[in-house]
Write a protein that binds this DNA or RNA. Sequence first.
DNA 1: CAAAATTAATCAAACGATTGATTGGCTTGG
DNA 2: CCAAGCCAATCAATCGTTTGATTAATTTTG
Lengths: 215, 215
Amino acid sequence: MDKDKIDKKDHILDVAERIFSDLGFDGASTRMISGEAGVNMAMLNYYFGSKEGLFLAVFERKISSFQTLLQNIGNDESMSSWDKLEKCIDNYVDRMIVNNCFQKLINREMSMGKRWDLTDKITEILMINVMELKKIFEEGIKNGSFGKGIDPELMIATIFGTKNYIINAPHIASLMLGHDIRDEEFLEEKFKPRFKTYMKQLLKSYLMNDNDYTK
Amino acid sequence: MDKDKIDKKDHILDVAERIFSDLGFDGASTRMISGEAGVNMAMLNYYFGSKEGLFLAVFERKISSFQTLLQNIGNDESMSSWDKLEKCIDNYVDRMIVNNCFQKLINREMSMGKRWDLTDKITEILMINVMELKKIFEEGIKNGSFGKGIDPELMIATIFGTKNYIINAPHIASLMLGHDIRDEEFLEEKFKPRFKTYMKQLLKSYLMNDNDYTK
DNA sequence: CAAAATTAATCAAACGATTGATTGGCTTGG
DNA sequence: CCAAGCCAATCAATCGTTTGATTAATTTTG
């Protein structure tokens, strides 16, 4: 049956995603992935062409679920610029917890200079989110919701950067917060609300200033 | 001469630092490092014992140069809490540019779970900076300079996170800013001042609010 | 319908390349 | 001369990938 084939490919992708996330692209070996997935090594190349093809397949599957999610926030005419921004933040925070292994994987690969075709594809995807935010900021400036003196680009760096910092350095974050960040209950009940609140206050304070720098 | 030996070891460490930073531990090969350093491959093992030994040597050299560099601004009685924070930001931004290769290396290694002895060591170093900032924030809250409702821990995440985002994803950052972030002249003349200004305004807006959340 | 032909899926084995590490001998300064 | 510095050659291991054979499934044909 066709169903079985898809299930098997999906199972391979599940295993590959976990191993890639844990060990990175270089650290993960095709033998390990095939072994853990219970399939013959040659199947990886048979199905996905190459190790890199497998990695891309993992990536594409993951992001296809993202793509549509936040796409239409920006185009919603009924929301104010600030409401859109709030919605984006809620979205990012919720997703960052669920997919933190995968996010780590992306961040690691992005910081690596090599494998240009790969990073190009990742860049392409990430830039969608970036542009989405940028659009909201620029719209907000135009219609006067946000101060004229704000720096949209660096604000984006702050939004993603703060999120990534927590994800990439959970060891440090845990020490800082006085609680293991990987504890799911703590994450869900304490950290997520706190993080959302903080982010919104931080951005709001900055955005609602005119930040006039012509002292 | 002994001097020559030290110079050569140092040169190897220079090259190794750059290559490890660019390609990661797994991605960097001993042949590449030795080749680019212009020494025989066997010399790496002769000097440093192993690839991991070389990696550790890169770290220790860099860390030892850090140790002395960051002195406690926090204990200066003559500065206001805000002035201290400003000074810290200037410090971090300046340093981030100089050592961005190494910073990348640290961030990657921290996000990777393995090599615990190493991450423990890195954590120790990074926590010094974290605690320094935390002290300033808490002092500012206590003496009324900063609003009571602020979230010091997440602010720290924002400061380091924003910085790391630029460093780790220069490809994205460059696209965002419309200019290659690795262009040194642009970095020094345009980006650094802009980044400092943004950071200070962002933090100031947030800190000077009372952020009362009991709506 | 049944036999033959074709295609798809799977496997063990081996491929060439590259990895980090080691050897043994050559060179050289003290 | 002799230890330290150095290097070409080589090691076993592992890497991602390919192969050719085998089985299972599907389609075609008489």
